[in-house]
Write a protein that binds this DNA or RNA. Structure first.
Length: 285
DNA sequence: ATCCATTCCTGTACGC
DNA sequence: TGCGTACAGGAATGGA
């Protein structure tokens, strides 16, 4: 999916375009997402004003003046597009194959949520009780907040035998880090992805925390990473993918590596928990 | 308590 | 061109 930088990029665009706008009409085209969509979303969204759009972990939270919040998670292949009235000039909205939610705003623009694989989710919840909702209730700390420190991570990893790569992807330990940025952050920190999470020194965890923040911030600055499905809300691709150090670069030389990939084999691809991990055996120990 | 494989669903790339 | 297979950015689940 969209990991934290991609979701953050989308949220910033949505905030710019949607806040203070009123939803004129809404249409939900399926209830079959990762969790069944409950309630009459179309009716509950119509005539409501959007007062804020924020991110929590990889969730998009759209606060409405009705005291409810529209929650969107993009799963692996979800995307959100906003289209101007001007680009639609006179045309009726045409639903594409995997469009699941359509909103028409009072300035004539439209927001569409699409998700071919339907691993994403949509929910409308009481804003006041949002944090009690199970998927949000168990989430760990935000990696870009100041209070996410080596001490935080150390405490959360204590005694864990699972690999550090898998631990970083566990949203109860730290949120927002998915398959790409887990590999990238571990490369920056020089930590081998298979190390037991609970056995890494505080010093190395401090470097890991810095690396996580650094790679996430750099990617946000680049508008995220586009592999296949991800697009910014205006339809443009991100461009951080061109700056990956190890992700999807098996056999190549890692940035600044001293070794000859012809001999060393370069960046390795292994599988952990069913997901690909990329790392440099020379620089990551 | 922790960890692992499996599952949801669809699209695409690749080898034959 | 067509077919089968593997794999893809996430996260919940059940069983070990």
């Amino acid at each position: 999916m969209p990991e934290l930088p991609e979701v953050e990029t989308i949220v910033r665009a949505l905030a710019r375009r949607l806040v203070k706008k009123r939803i004129k009409q809404a249409a939900l085209f399926t209830t079959r997402l990762r969790l069944p969509v409950t309630g009459n979303l179309s009716r509950q969204l119509a005539e409501k004003r959007i007062i804020a759009v924020v991110r929590r972990a990889k969730y998009i939270l759209i606060h409405l003046d009705s005291g409810r919040t529209l929650v969107i998670h993009l799963g692996m292949t979800g995307s959100i597009r906003i289209r101007d009235r001007s680009t639609q000039a006179g045309k009726l909205f045409a639903r594409a194959r995997h469009d699941h939610l359509w909103l028409q705003l009072d300035d004539g623009s439209e927001m569409v949520f699409s998700d071919p694989r339907r691993f994403g989710l949509l929910a409308l919840l009481e804003t006041e009780n949002l944090e009690l909702w199970a998927p949000l209730a168990t989430l760990g700390p935000e990696p870009l907040e100041r209070k996410f420190t080596a001490a935080t991570l150390h405490e959360r990893l204590a005694g864990r035998k699972v690999s550090i790569k898998q631990a970083l992807m566990n949203q109860e330990i730290v949120v927002g880090v998915g398959n790409i940025y887990a590999s990238e952050a571990l490369f920056l920190a020089g930590i081998k992805p298979t190390m037991a999470a609970g056995r890494i020194s505080s010093e190395r965890l401090a470097l890991l925390v810095k690396s996580i923040k650094k790679v996430l911030r750099a990617s946000i600055s680049a508008g995220g990473s586009t592999l296949k499905d991800y697009r910014q809300a205006n339809g443009e691709t991100g461009f951080f993918q061109s700056r990956f150090s190890v992700y999807d670069r098996a056999g190549q030389r890692c940035p600044g590596c001293c070794c000859d990939p012809e001999k060393s084999g370069g960046i390795q691809r292994i599988v952990q928990g069913g997901r690909s991990t990329f790392y440099c055996p020379v620089r990551q120990r």
